[in-house]
Design a protein around this nucleic acid. Structure first.
Lengths: 343, 343
DNA sequence: TTGAAAGCGCTAACAT
DNA sequence: ATGTTAGCGCTTTCAA
């Protein structure tokens, strides 16, 4: 008979093991869960498990206990930032026997909502995701069902969830302060989406730094307003066509910086010398390029660790219901694209 | 009373719905699974579901049916290549109601083995992973249990699994042929790990192209042998210190190419003009750089689509047990680092 | 088409 | 420390 690939051979169950080892299922279960069992039985069980190639059915366990050992991470995509968070989060959770499942939704709120429901139905122990206002309802439902939710990177206000963020405002403020310190006065900002806290906070930091230095913000120097490369291409053109173009630019993320870099290459503008550039988000490209791009590096590993700490706290039942917020410092990595302006 | 975050409110079950709608649980279940139910009952059930905010417990369903709607992807990390495959795979599976769970194991065979066991125990519908010889046993166990496994990117011989690969050998052969066609004779290869089929096949393609052109392979021109940046740094140094250094280099992946690029920058060697470079794997960096790096682009999207087709075939019970192998063509993207050698 | 009930594999409460 | 057994929420067979 031809065994079709979707007809699975019946797997051994805990009952088979119990019979083979001549003990009760309860004993096997307890042994499997680390509760003390006397030596001879232990051996018999071990032998039975090996002989029958027994694998505990995790689904049945989850069904019984209403808990799994899965934590879900929902991301729009895997850029360097997310990938690094993911790495440290995976490690942190694995140390406590939790497995991180990642799901990518490409920024589509519908896909995100579906994913949240899916993971809720599968009883994951926690969900980690950037805050997205479109899924307030689903997130609230999760929390109501007692499944902890952790926001990172982007926030949505007034939700009873835990939060781990880097200090977008402070880091942006310091970044722009650096530009001011080395002599720039005409500093532009290519902004991200201000409806998201990341975009909003980074622009706020920019404005604050100007204000701190007593420099009046010039609305013509604030351009962009989306995370799209296309729009940044337009934004940089607008800036450079100004009667008095800026001598320095602070971009809200690395994609926007790429637009500036390309523009400069096409127009023979020497970055650093003719025009300073400082970008939020530090990526491999910025290290490889010549001149290297000065950038705000988010502490991705630390973010991942903080998230796993918060999540594990919930799973182990340490934290009370009151949501925790962790704010982490960024570093500004000085490279060659930030130089004093020409005299 | 303070509700601790890990005390979940009891969620509505199918029984609650049945009572609320005044029908039997069987009827609710059938309705939920798309089996015809008469109009008035349908309405009552819908109303009950809405009123009780019922969500089907996916764990219980999986327990009963011994099937989930999850497919697991195991990757060492998220580089551009994997990220793109992932994107198209996620889409392809979502179209058929399957959710892709990604797990990253950082190339650690132990972590990989654990992950495979984990997903097996959780009854995923399929596992997608690069072939890794260290986990033959676990993979065999999966297949024995009737869970289809799909290898991609890297192969392990003699395993009863499905396979989706790009044509490493053919693409490498063509790439090196291009270098020969534009006039190069002293062509070096910085090899990857030859114990992996990717590394092996790429070197084989290199040798074949030389042979095709009647050029004797010079063992001094074949260096490296790991995927590590460190080793590539040494490899490129070895090559350039040769009495007759190569005029062109074919690297087995993009990390190895970075070593060449850095070396050239440090030694003021003009890529393209002084030394041609052609790399396997096309990455964003190669597009952004000046000069742009000529590269072999793997058809990542097509790979993802092929994988989802194979997986869905299994899930829908179309394929027979005989494993399928899909081989996909690569493209060579010409940029500025491959020029005729100096006269 | 519908209801009643068995049972998927496991854990945990209870009894010993 | 160990055996016995109820029951987690669902699907599916069997009857009606």
């Amino acid at each position: 008979m031809i065994l079709r690939s979707n007809e699975r051979r019946r797997a051994a169950t805990i009952i088979d093991v119990a019979q083979h080892a001549n003990v009760s299922v309860g004993t096997v279960s307890r042994y499997l869960n680390g509760i003390t069992v006397r030596q001879p039985k232990r051996e018999a069980i071990d032998k039975a498990i090996a002989a029958l190639r027994y694998n505990r059915n995790a689904v049945a366990k989850a069904m019984r206990t209403d808990r799994t050992n899965m934590v879900a991470l929902l991301v729009p995509g895997y850029d360097e930032f997310f990938a690094e968070i993911l790495a440290s989060l995976t490690r942190g959770l694995a140390a406590e026997g939790q497995v991180l499942l990642t799901h990518k939704h490409e920024g589509d709120p519908k896909a995100l909502a579906l994913a949240i429901e899916f993971f809720q139905n599968h009883r994951v122990n926690a969900i980690v995701t950037p805050g997205v206002s479109e899924v307030r309802q689903q997130v609230q439902a999760m929390v109501d069902h007692g499944i902890p939710v952790v926001f990172f990177n982007n926030d949505v206000a007034d939700m009873p969830v835990d939060r781990v963020f880097s200090k977008n405002f402070e880091a942006s403020r310091q970044a722009v302060k650096h530009l001011i310190d080395i002599g720039h006065r005409r500093i532009a900002h290519i902004a991200g989406d201000r409806r998201e806290t990341t975009g909003h906070e980074r622009q706020r930091g920019y404005l604050q730094a100007l204000d701190d230095a007593g420099i009046a913000a010039d609305p013509r120097y604030i351009v962009g307003g989306t995370w799209k490369r296309q729009d940044a291409n337009i934004a940089i053109m607008q800036l450079m066509q100004l009667p008095e173009p800026p001598t320095a630019i602070f971009t809200a993320n690395y994609v926007l910086a790429l637009a500036v870099i390309d523009y400069c290459r096409q127009h023979n503008i020497a970055l650093g010398e003719d025009l300073s550039l400082l970008s939020f988000d530090d990526v491999e490209l910025f290290r490889q390029m010549h001149p290297g791009v000065t950038a705000v590096a988010q502490p991705a590993s630390a973010i991942g660790e903080a998230i796993s700490e918060v999540v594990l706290g919930h799973i182990n039942g340490i934290h009370p219901a009151a949501p925790r917020t962790v704010m982490l410092d960024c570093n500004i990595i000085l490279r060659q694209t930030t130089q004093p302006p020409r005299a």
